[in-house]
């Protein structure tokens, strides 16, 4: 009964927060599928860390905490970080993973310095900027949900419109280029969609753990299906599920940051999927293995008789 009373207390604020979390879980889950299939899971991490100084600079320049402005700042910084990584790889002999690490830590460090400076100034308006580190879903307001819904919706629509082109890009980039699709432009498009998904989640989940929202739902979804369409759909569902459950837990218990809670929920989904999914799951594999061994044994026994 105690638990039920908590549920009936799903008041308006919590509902807004849950809707926001569901939306961003859907967007990041669906788009994260492409990052995982392209083996770019860590790119998401770099983008989310690189976005942090963008938020601070956007605030310093405008003095405003309007979500759209902060998201724009984050997106630009995330984009610059990505471009920098790609340029380092192209122009120097530094490898992809090192370039990623360099950009990620430099941008993130710069972001932390800026945030500390902003806090020192004692600007009364600054409160809440630090939620971008670990996420605080409780700070999500109606206008934030609107921003997430609008931008996330646009990103998902673009993904659906260019479904065939993006699928081909991820599966066989060389072939895509040979039949005339501009793979560089498609690459930029896909990365931009990822940037959108990431910056939308920064407020609720935080820069440190946002990449988990891209990767975890997709990894879990891959376990259950061999079809891209279903994988994107399942990843979106898992993302929404983890988002809602995580925010509700973190909002009801006081002072638990939302990012880690959501990520833990997503991890549970991943764990269950890796263990129990048919065909790809570990348990299933074990059973099949033993069944094979048994039938092999009876067959050889019969032969030896």
């Amino acid at each position: 009964m105690e638990n039920l009373s908590v549920l009936t207390h799903l008041d308006y604020t919590l509902m807004i927060v849950a809707i926001g979390a569901a939306l961003l879980g859907t967007v990041s889950g669906a788009l994260g599928t492409y990052a995982v299939l392209r083996r770019q899971s860590l790119l998401g991490d770099a983008i989310s860390h690189a976005a942090l100084p963008g938020i601070a600079i956007a605030f310093l320049l405008t003095g405003s905490k309007t979500p759209l402005i902060l998201v724009l700042g984050a997106a630009i910084a995330g984009w610059l970080g990505t471009l920098l990584i790609l340029s380092i790889v192209r122009l120097t002999r530094i490898k992809y993973d090192s370039a990623l690490a360099i950009v990620l830590s430099t941008f993130f460090g710069f972001g932390l310095v800026l945030h500390t400076l902003i806090q020192r100034t004692g600007n009364a308006n600054q409160a809440g900027l630090d939620t971008f580190l670990f996420g605080q879903a409780a700070t999500i307001l109606e206008r934030d949900v609107l921003t997430i819904g609008l931008l996330g919706g646009v990103a998902l629509i673009i993904m659906l419109v260019f479904w065939k082109e993006l699928k081909l890009l991820v599966f066989d980039e060389g072939f895509a280029a040979s039949i005339g699709f501009p793979t560089r432009a498609l690459d930029i498009l896909l990365t931009s969609l990822l940037v959108i998904a990431i910056v939308l989640g920064l407020q609720a989940v935080g820069a440190v753990l946002m990449s988990a929202m891209l990767v975890a739902p997709a990894v879990a979804a891959r376990q259950w299906t061999n079809r891209l369409r279903l994988m994107v759909f399942l990843a979106a569902c898992f993302g929404a599920f983890a988002g809602v459950i995580g925010t509700i837990i973190s909002s009801t218990a006081s002072r638990i940051p939302t990012g880690p809670t959501i990520v833990l929920c997503a991890t549970v989904v991943v764990g269950i999927s890796i263990a129990f999914a048919p065909n790809r799951g570990l348990v299933w594999e074990r059973i099949r293995h033993q069944r094979n061994r048994r039938s092999l044994k009876t067959a050889t026994d019969r032969l030896l008789k």
Binding site: L37, R39, V161, F162, K164, E165, K167, L168, V170, F171, D172, G174, F175, A176, S178, I179, G180, F181, R222, T225, N226, R227, L228, L230, M231
Partner: peptide, 29 residues
């Protein structure tokens, strides 16, 4: 292309891959 140039664990089936050969003629979208 070389067979090894793609990830064969990509979630799709045989028919779908073969139809990719028509994507160029189909054009955008």
């Amino acid at each position: 292309p070389q067979r090894g140039s793609v990830d064969w664990d990509f979630p799709t089936n045989v028919l779908d891959v073969v139809m990719m050969g028509r994507y160029g003629a189909l054009g955008w979208v």
